[in-house]
Amino acid sequence: MGILNKLDNSVEQFESGNIIITSMDKLLNWSRLSSMWQMFFGLACCAIEMMATSASHYDLDRFGIIPRPSPRHVDIILISGTVTLKMATRIKRLYDEMPAPKYILSMGSCANCGGPYWEHGYHVLKGIDRIIPVDVYVPGCPPRPEALLEGLIKLQERIRNQSLAKHIA
């Protein structure tokens, strides 16, 4: 049973086998982290690596990460590439349209800090964190699919340790 493996030490199982007891937070977090829907949205070079990661060779689906075209459906947004000033306002708007709780993964040097365009890029935003808060930064130009997967696992860890109850109160 997958759920028992995931919830492991915090689960108490009764003998008949159909009742388990766990904390609400653990259950909610488990369900949230194993179905992180991402926005179907690519910006630049990193978007190709993102596509390669979600295609057959690396297969993002096994983490429950499925691309969705509408910001209303998604939990995470991967900022995959250079954010220009013209695009920045649109990204801010997409972010605002996402329902909470929402997470941002900044993929690649450009989204982290401007990357190779930091010095003379008159039209490049030097880091997505100047307009929206970022949960996980993945360095690289572009990051390898393995690096992106590592970033997503880090994000899962972050969700696992959150408490929604505290959040609401």
Binding site: G114, Y122, K126, R130, I131
Partner: peptide, 20 residues
């Protein structure tokens, strides 16, 4: 026009800081 040799990059655009 940015490709003029004497072009100065502005400090802000729409409230977003441009220089690093």
């Amino acid at each position: 026009h940015p490709l003029r040799k004497d072009y100065k990059v502005p400090e802000f655009y729409n409230g977003m800081k441009i220089p690093y």
